[in-house]
């Protein structure tokens, strides 16, 4: 099966006025994880070449759908990798190093976010199963969307997404 692979790579460091800045990445920890990150089957070089230029750790599933159709949308500080699953669903992971707002962690909202940042919740919202999490300084969203959002267990039960979450590996990213 051939790869379907699009890349939008905007490597300039341009940030919109409403983007306040970039989050600090814990590269020391990232480098430790990279050593342990071994995909079951290597991602194509065409893909890893692009990923290697991003300035955040790029997490992807370690064992999933390397042969399927996928799309990568990326700039230096952001990516969305989405896979067309064979049986009518889409899986996507988004990584993001930018931030748009700041908040004092001692405020009520700040405390709520601080608490939420330490939790991993898989939630079936609007017919999608997803989770948001932070790792090594950047933020990520893992999501599955089903063509049948009511009866497809991948979108009603967290098991499917949780298994993918547990096997994410760092495929690229550089300082």
């Amino acid at each position: 099966m051939s790869h379907k692979f699009y890349t939008i790579l905007l490597l300039s460091s341009f940030l919109n006025a409403e983007t306040l800045g970039l989050l600090d990445i814990n590269w020391k920890q990232v480098n430790k994880e990279v050593v342990m990150s071994k995909p079951q089957k290597a991602y194509p070089k065409k893909l890893t070449d692009v990923i290697g230029k991003m300035t955040l750790p790029v997490y992807l599933p370690s064992n999933y759908l390397y042969e399927s159709k996928y799309t990568l949308i990326a700039d230096a500080n952001f990516y969305t990798m989405s896979y067309h699953l064979e049986d009518n669903a889409r899986l996507s992971i988004t990584g993001d190093r930018t931030f748009q707002d700041t908040l004092n962690p001692n405020t009520t909202d700040g405390q709520s976010l601080l608490k939420a940042s330490k939790m991993i919740e898989f939630y079936p919202a609007e017919g999608l199963m997803s989770t948001d999490f932070g790792r090594n300084g950047a933020n990520y969203t893992l999501l599955v969307e089903c063509y049948d959002s009511i009866s497809d267990k991948r979108c009603t039960d967290k098991t499917f997404l949780q298994n993918i979450y547990n096997k994410l590996i760092i495929v690229g990213g550089t300082k």
Binding site: F99, L103, P105, L113, G127, C146, S149, I150
Partner: peptide, 29 residues
């Protein structure tokens, strides 16, 4: 359209952004 089922005719619209709390902590909300 809601993936093989119907909802009422409407747009669900939401926005996510990242909030920096400092000290290496942030959260997408």
């Amino acid at each position: 359209n809601m993936g093989g089922t119907k909802t009422s005719i409407h747009l669900h619209f939401d926005v996510q952004q990242t909030v920096n709390l400092g000290n290496g902590v942030s959260k997408k909300v």
